Simulated assay, not measured.
Amino acid sequence: MKFRALMQDPMYMREFQAIVATLAKLAKECIMILGERQMHFIVNEDQSSTSSPLVWASIAAEEYFPEYRLETARPDQDYIVLSMSSANLSRALSVLRGGGISSCKLKLQRIQFPCISVIATVSSSAVTEDREVVHDVPVSIIPASDWSAYVVPRVPNSQLALCLPSVRLLRSLIDKLKNISPSLEFQASYDGELSVIATSEMSTVTSRFQRLVPRSLTGSEEGASCSVDSRKASAFFGALQLPNEEMTIAIEREQSIHLQIYVRQDVVLHSILPAVCM
């Protein structure tokens, strides 16, 4: 069982670090699924917290890694599945935020324990030779017999999706609305309007985003709505470390809300907020 990947573009390295930093703010543990062409990170709802949403990232290997090699334990297996501390991985990758990093290698190896080694090469004009900064992140290798418990979540069959041009505005709004109501209702219409509604015993607050770009999927033109836990919504938006402003909000009527941030064409951060009973 072997894995090795190499990043060399500073922008891609910072994006990769920001994705992992986002996950680390949401849960203590994460699952890393290494496939032949894709890498996935999954953080499930933290059992110790009722406000932690389901979040995962899917990364096409060719987007970030000019070198990406995977060798599974058996020829009939397509993946390597690892469990690790998201905080430890985030700390190991934090070196990528600085300047002078010419490359970063990720390598699965066994020292005294199985680990993902993060090996960053630092170049400096002050010295003639590059130096390496190495962090070994302990991992647990999930046996194939348990893989069914660690699958990439299914994207919901949403009736309507809207493209929101500013994550920042919605993040600020939800941070305020969570103090008004334990749940938030999202209503989307085919004419490109998104309403976020918080209701309490004393008042109802409705905020509207208009002239959004709709992506109708299935169903009639009645639009779609769903109420979700305001703390889970706030936790997701508060954790975001990515600079991307655009987000797609897809609503599966009365079932869930699917949030998507396209970091790149084949690099996507997802979150599913399940419906709550009203």
Rank of each mutant, 00 (worst) to 15 (best):
L162I: 13
R168W: 09
A233R: 08
K232R: 15
E252P: 05
Q241F: 04
Q187L: 14
L217E: 08
S200W: 03
A21W: 00
S102Y: 11
S158Q: 05
V205A: 07
I101N: 01
Q47C: 10
I101R: 07
M39P: 02
L173E: 15
E222V: 14
R97I: 09
M1D: 04
L194T: 06
V118E: 01
P53A: 08
E245I: 03
L240T: 13
P10V: 13
L82M: 02
V133C: 03
G223S: 14
Q112V: 05
A87K: 07
A57W: 09
V20P: 12
S124Q: 02
I141H: 02
S183H: 07
P75M: 03
L170W: 08
I249Y: 09
K107I: 00
P182G: 11
R91E: 03
L170I: 14
A120G: 01
A188T: 08
E245C: 12
Y12H: 13
D130T: 10
S172P: 06
W147E: 10
C163D: 15
I111A: 11
A224C: 15
H135S: 09
V268D: 06
R110E: 05
S271K: 00
V228L: 12
C104P: 05
L106G: 00
K107T: 07
G98D: 00
R231E: 02
D130V: 09
I19K: 03
S225T: 10
V137Y: 03
A21F: 01
A18P: 09
A18Q: 14
F113N: 02
F41K: 05
H258W: 15
G98M: 07
Q17R: 12
V205Y: 01
Y190K: 08
E15K: 15
L160Q: 06
Q38A: 11
S58C: 12
S145W: 03
K232G: 00
Q77G: 01
E185K: 14
S58H: 01
A233V: 14
Y12N: 08
R97Q: 15
P114L: 06
F113K: 02
E193V: 15
S200C: 07
